[in-house]
Amino acid sequence: MLINTVLVFLQNILPIFVVFSLLFAQQDARYKSSSLESSQSSSQSRNQSSNQSSNKEKNNIYYLPIIYLLKTTGIGLIIVFLLSYFMPMLSQLFSGTGLEILFSILFSLIYCFIVISFLLNQTSSHKKSQDKMLLDQQTLTQQKTLVSLAILLLVLCVHGSYFSLYVMSLTIQNTALETLYSGIVVGVIIGTGICLSIAILLYFILVSLAKKLRSQIVCYFLLLFGVGQLIQGLQLLEQVDIISSTAHLWSTNYLIAEDSELGYFLTILFGYEATPSAMELIVYLSAIIVPILIAKINTSKQNSTASFMKGTS
C-alpha cells in the first residue's frame, strides 16, 4: 500500500508542483528581463528615465500574490471535495462515461488557458519593445495573473480529484484502519518530499538559463505541459470509445518506459507517450504548432501597424 500510494501521489500530484514551478519560473524570468531593460534605459538618459524605469518595472513584473494563491488553493480543495463526493453519481452519466467526459473537458480547459497565457506573454514581450502605455501593460499583467490562477485551479481540481478517488477506493476496502491511514500518511509525506525536490530542481534549472532566452523557454515549457494535459484528455475519450483509437505507430518503451520514474516525469512535463497513435500524434503536433503560428501572425501584424504609424507620423 505504501509503494502504491507514493506512485499514485507522484502520478497525480506532481503535475501540481510542476505547474507551480513553471509559473514561478515564468514570473522570475519576466522580473529579471524587466529589471535588465529598465537599467539599460536609465543608463541612456538618467534625467528622464527615473519615472519610465519605475513604470516599466510596474508594467513588466508579473506577480502571483501569495494571498491569491492561498485562496485559489482553498477553492480548489473545496472543488476536489465536491467532485469526490459526487463522483459515483457523475460516473453514471452518459451511459457510464460521465467521469471520462468531465475530466477530458477539464484537461482541454487547462490546455486552452495555457495557450491564452502563452499568447499573452508573446503579446506582452512585443508590446514591451514597442513602449506601450502603462494602462495596457497593467491590463496585460492582470489578465496573466487571472489566467495563471485559472490554470492552477484546474490542475489542482483535476489531479487532486484523481488522488482523492484513489484514497476513497482504499477506504472502501476491508483494510485495518491503522494500516490504511499509516500507509496513506507516510506515502503522502514521502511523495510530497519527492515532488518538492523535483519542482525546486526544475525551477532552478529554468531560472539559470540565459537571460535573453529564459522567458521564451519557460513559455514553451508551459505550452508543452498544456499539450500533455490535452493528450491525457484525448486518451480518456479513447478509453471509452468516444474517439476511435488507431494502431500504435511505434514503441519507445525499450528506451524510456512510461511506468518508469523518468517516464512519469516526461509524461507530466510534455506528454511523453511511448506508444502514440496517429490521432494522438496529429493532435500533439497541432496543439504545439497552432499557438505558435497565431503568436507569429499577431507579432507580424503588430509590427506592420507600428511601422505604418511611424511612417504617417
Score class of each variant (00 low, 15 high):
residue 77 L to E: 01
residue 174 N to S: 13
residue 194 I to N: 05
residue 165 L to M: 11
residue 14 L to C: 01
residue 210 A to S: 13
residue 223 L to M: 08
residue 79 I to N: 03
residue 9 F to A: 05
residue 206 L to T: 01
residue 232 Q to V: 10
residue 50 S to I: 14
residue 302 Q to M: 14
residue 18 V to H: 03
residue 109 L to Y: 08
residue 24 F to I: 10
residue 226 G to Y: 04
residue 40 Q to G: 00
residue 284 Y to F: 14
residue 33 S to I: 11
residue 208 S to G: 09
residue 97 T to S: 15
residue 153 L to F: 12
residue 148 S to M: 04
residue 75 I to R: 06
residue 125 S to W: 03
residue 180 L to E: 02
residue 38 S to H: 01
residue 141 T to L: 08
residue 137 Q to C: 05
residue 56 K to M: 10
residue 135 L to H: 09
residue 225 F to I: 01
residue 27 Q to D: 07
residue 211 K to T: 06
residue 192 T to M: 10
residue 256 I to E: 08
residue 242 I to V: 14
residue 263 G to K: 09
residue 136 D to N: 12
residue 11 Q to C: 00
residue 153 L to A: 09
residue 262 L to D: 02
residue 200 I to H: 02
residue 283 V to M: 01
residue 92 Q to S: 13
residue 309 M to E: 15
residue 69 L to Y: 07
residue 26 Q to G: 13
residue 93 L to K: 07
residue 64 L to Y: 12
residue 83 L to T: 09
residue 192 T to V: 09
residue 159 H to W: 12
residue 194 I to L: 11
residue 186 V to N: 02
residue 161 S to H: 10
residue 42 S to T: 12
residue 312 T to R: 14
residue 163 F to Y: 15
residue 237 L to P: 06
residue 72 T to V: 13
residue 148 S to Q: 08
residue 117 S to N: 15
residue 19 V to G: 01
residue 40 Q to S: 09
residue 258 E to F: 10
residue 64 L to D: 05
residue 21 S to P: 07
residue 100 E to G: 06
residue 184 I to P: 06
residue 211 K to A: 10
residue 160 G to W: 05
residue 59 N to E: 13
residue 251 S to Y: 02
residue 211 K to H: 10
residue 309 M to D: 10
residue 217 I to A: 00
residue 5 T to A: 04
residue 227 V to T: 11
residue 308 F to L: 15
residue 150 A to H: 04
residue 279 M to D: 01
residue 283 V to D: 00
residue 116 I to R: 11
residue 305 T to P: 00
residue 108 S to Q: 00
residue 133 M to R: 14
residue 278 A to E: 09
residue 21 S to V: 08
residue 259 D to H: 13
residue 109 L to P: 04
residue 313 S to I: 11
residue 138 Q to P: 00
residue 223 L to G: 03
residue 129 S to W: 08
residue 92 Q to A: 03
residue 280 E to V: 13
residue 199 A to E: 03
residue 155 V to P: 07
residue 166 Y to Q: 09
residue 110 I to R: 00
residue 255 L to S: 08
residue 312 T to E: 08
residue 106 L to Y: 07
residue 99 L to I: 15
residue 301 K to I: 11
residue 122 Q to C: 09
residue 148 S to C: 05
residue 22 L to K: 00
